[in-house]
Write a protein that binds this DNA or RNA. Structure first.
Lengths: 220, 220
DNA sequence: CCCTAACAACTACACCGTAAGCCTGTCAAG
DNA sequence: CTTGACAGGCTTACGGTGTAGTTGTTAGGG
């Protein structure tokens, strides 16, 4: 063991940004459960405790990468019609959450929305206010849309693997589990198995909500 | 220490039901994070490993208590009008999830819905089918409603403590955080602070969706 | 060339879920 | 009453987690 092993050649290589970027990549590549301090340190060629010089702790890292994800959703331009703005913001958020399947559950556990989220939120709210929605209605509208985005995405991600990928297994499951006890679900299972598949569209529910808001808006 | 301490007088005291009941109570009382095998064993006056005789592991416990929660939501009677059935099922689920604030996040992480959930689901699906909705439309309708229930509840539970409980703090927060950078949010914050408070209603978004489904139904 | 401040590394602690094996209270059969 | 089986609780141990506190090493300025 004569080798002193200067294992750490470059010192000046860590920073909050680098740590968060590495954490994001690790979560994307190996799942959110793989994101531990030791594992992250290892991925950066550094001991776990070294990360604490640049980041307050794991919570801070989660806050950070959650905001990195929200940073991916485009902020709607101020002069868009309110419906278009709301629609785009919803779709953009949905897509960002799909790109990072762990993000929805992480966001759920955060207490405060990060700056990126706040910025986007403010833009949408301003547009709705400018369009003539009352302040309470803005709150309601925004909450309804956000609930759909969040709830739909989580359900979508929890889908038990695409049934059409393994029709045999799915068939067996449908037959066994839903045999006679659950006629309604059986019909749904049949649907999932036959034909080219009917993907449940994110925009179906979204448009339901936006239609309702539109009527509210034209009435009020 | 001459006392042999027959610490375990009654042997016949554990069972799957008892373990799940204790786990549910522990989660309710001290939060889902307090629910560890050791902690649960302690609460039952037993060592952690003893639980494994009655339960497959922690995942099994989580499955179990999640289903206990879903068991609390009343299954809509088969002969109800579809809109009423959907509405009641949604409200019932919402209330059950509010009673057990940890339940939403646990349910999210479960792969398969438990029997209680499946039963309720089947009832709603059957009613929708009987009402004349096409199978794909049932899937869409159901998904839209469920996304709202789940998404809204999670957002509701993440609300950063009721701002009206500590108006001073809230005022400071509103002033500082949203000073000038976020005019839209500032208006929302003002709303949250003034007046008797405008609770965002769960049923607002729900009715938006149900209205849309009603139009779809009468049209198709 | 050396000093010092910055910062990576290490050790340690208290927790977690659970695999494997041990020990004992309980009860039925002889 | 004795005996044996066994259900089921107990103990130990392993490998993981986040992180507080301490110890080294190094890079850059004087």
């Amino acid at each position: 063991m004569t080798v002193p092993a200067p294992a750490h050649r470059r010192r000046r290589k860590l920073s909050r940004e680098l740590v968060l970027a590495a954490a994001l990549r690790l979560a994307d590549d190996e799942g959110i459960d793989a994101l531990s301090m030791r594992r992250l340190g290892q991925a950066m060629g550094v001991e776990a405790m070294s990360l604490y010089k640049h980041v307050a702790g794991k919570e801070d890292i989660l806050d950070g990468i959650a905001d990195l994800v929200m940073d991916e959703v485009p902020v709607p331009a101020r002069d868009l019609p309110w419906r278009v703005a709301l629609h785009r913001s919803a779709v953009g958020t949905h897509e960002a959450l799909l790109r990072h399947p762990w993000a929805a559950s992480v966001l759920e556990s955060r207490r405060n929305p990060g700056p990126a989220r706040v910025t986007c939120l403010d833009a949408v709210v301003s547009i709705l206010l400018a369009a003539g929605f009352s302040t309470p209605d803005v709150a309601r509208a925004f909450t309804a849309v956000d609930a759909h985005v969040y709830g739909f995405t989580v359900m979508e991600l929890a889908w038990p693997f695409d049934l059409r990928d393994s029709p045999e297994e799915a068939r067996v499951m449908a037959d066994e589990v839903f045999a006679d006890a659950y006629p309604g679900l059986r019909a749904m299972a049949e649907l999932a198995l036959t034909g080219p598949g009917v993907p449940i569209e994110f925009e179906f529910g979204l448009d339901l909500i936006l239609d309702g808001l539109e009527r509210l808006h034209s009435r009020g």
